[in-house]
C-alpha cells in the first residue's frame, strides 16, 4: 500500500495547526517588541482549560473559547510583570512556562482517559466535493480555516493598516511611538493578550482535535517549536504558515515513510522535519534580505522621558 498524498496532505494541516496558531500569536507579540517565552505554558493551560470546558459543556466551541481566555489570562500575568512592573521578559516568560505546566497538571487531575466531544468537520458546500483539493483543503474543522484566515488577516493588518503600523512602530522604536502620543504599554499589553489567546487556542487544538485527549505535559515542546518558527519565518505571517505546514508535513510524511517500510534510515527521517523547515525558511529569507528582528525586541519600555 503506497502513501496516499491526499491523506498525507490532510494530516499535515492538522499536525501543523497548533504550532501555527501559537506561532502566529507570538509573532504579533514580538512585532510589538515583546519576547514572551511562555508560549509552552500558555499552550498547555489552553489545552487543559479547553478540554475541561468542552467536556463539561459538551461544546467544542465553548472549549476553544475557554482555552483562548485561559491563554490570555496567563499572558496578562506576564504582561503585568513585564510591562507594568518592568520585570525581565526572558525570566518572566520562562517562569510562565513553568507555572503553566504545573497549573495544567493540577487542573487536569481526573481528566485523563476521557474523550472530549468531537469537533465537527466543517464541509464547505461545493468546495468539499472537489476532487483531491476538496479533501485536502476543504473538509477540515473550523479552527483550521480560522488559523489560515488569521494568517491572512494579520499579514494584511501588519502591512496595510494604521493599527499594524502603530504596532510595528511600538516594536521598532517605542520611544518615537510614545513621543507621537501612542500608549506603548497599552498596545503591548493588548498584543500580549492576543498572543496568549492564540497560544491557548493552539493548545486546545492539541487536546480537542489533534490527539484528542488530555495528558499531562502533552504539548511536549510544541511551544518552543512555535517560538523557533517565528524567528525562522523572519517575523512574516505567510512564511510562518509555510514553515508550520512544512514542519507538520515532513513530520507526517516521515512517520508514513517508516510505516510503509521505505528503506531510508529512520534517524534521518526523524530529524528531517527540523532540518528541512529551517533550511527552507533560511533560504527564502536569505535572497531578499532577512527582515530581521523588531529593533526593540525584548527591551523594556518605561516612559520616563
Amino acid at each position: 500500500m503506497g502513501i496516499d498524498p491526499v491523506t498525507l496532505a490532510f494530516w499535515l494541516i492538522v499536525a501543523a495547526t497548533p504550532i501555527l496558531l501559537a506561532g502566529l500569536g507570538e509573532l504579533v507579540v514580538e512585532r510589538a517588541g515583546v519576547l514572551n517565552l511562555g508560549v509552552e505554558g500558555m499552550m498547555i493551560t489552553g489545552a487543559v482549560c479547553g478540554f475541561i470546558a468542552a467536556v463539561h459543556s459538551g461544546s467544542p466551541v465553548l472549549g476553544f473559547l475557554a482555552a483562548a481566555l485561559a491563554g490570555a489570562a496567563l499572558a496578562l500575568l506576564f504582561g503585568v510583570l513585564t510591562q507594568i512592573l518592568l520585570a525581565n521578559q526572558v525570566a518572566s516568560g520562562l517562569a510562565l512556562t513553568l507555572f503553566g505546566l504545573g497549573l495544567s497538571a493540577l487542573l487536569g487531575i481526573g481528566y485523563s482517559g476521557i474523550s472530549p466531544p468531537p469537533v465537527p468537520r466543517l464541509d464547505l458546500p461545493g468546495l468539499s466535493d472537489l476532487p483531491v483539493l476538496g479533501r485536502i483543503l476543504f473538509s477540515h474543522d473550523a479552527m483550521v480555516y480560522l488559523s489560515v484566515a488569521a494568517v491572512a488577516a494579520i499579514a494584511w493588518a501588519l502591512r496595510a493598516t494604521r493599527w499594524g503600523l502603530i504596532l510595528r512602530a511600538v516594536g521598532e522604536n517605542p520611544g518615537a511611538a510614545h513621543a507621537l502620543g501612542y500608549k506603548v504599554v497599552r498596545i503591548r499589553l493588548l498584543a500580549i493578550l492576543f498572543g496568549g489567546a492564540l497560544a491557548g487556542l493552539g493548545g486546545a487544538y492539541l487536546s480537542l482535535v489533534r490527539v484528542p485527549q488530555w495528558t499531562e505535559g502533552m504539548t511536549a515542546g510544541a511551544g518552543w517549536i512555535a517560538l523557533a518558527m517565528v524567528v525562522f519565518s523572519g517575523w512574516k505571517p505567510w512564511r510562518l504558515l509555510l514553515g508550520a505546514w512544512l514542519f507538520g508535513g515532513v513530520t507526517a510524511a516521515q512517520l508514513r515513510f517508516q510505516a510503509q517500510g521505505i528503506p531510508v534510515p529512520a534517524e534521518l527521517l526523524s530529524m528531517s522535519p527540523y532540518v528541512i523547515t529551517i533550511l527552507v525558511l533560511v533560504l527564502i529569507s536569505s535572497g531578499r534580505g532577512m527582515a530581521g528582528a523588531p529593533a526593540a525586541l525584548g527591551r523594556p519600555f518605561h516612559a520616563t522621558g
Binding site: I3, D4, T7, W11, A15, P18, L206, R210, V211, Q213, T215, G217, M218, A220, G221, A222, T251, A252, L255, R256, Q258, A259, Q260, G261, A266, E267, S270
Partner: peptide, 23 residues
C-alpha cells in the same frame, strides 16, 4: 511495521504514528 519516533513521551507524535500505521 515499525515506526521509530525517537521520544518516550510526545502524545501528538505518538498519535500521528498510530494514524500513519492505521493508514
Amino acid at each position: 511495521r515499525v515506526v521509530w519516533v525517537f521520544t518516550w513521551f510526545d502524545p501528538a507524535v505518538e498519535a500521528e504514528a498510530a494514524q500513519a500505521l492505521i493508514d
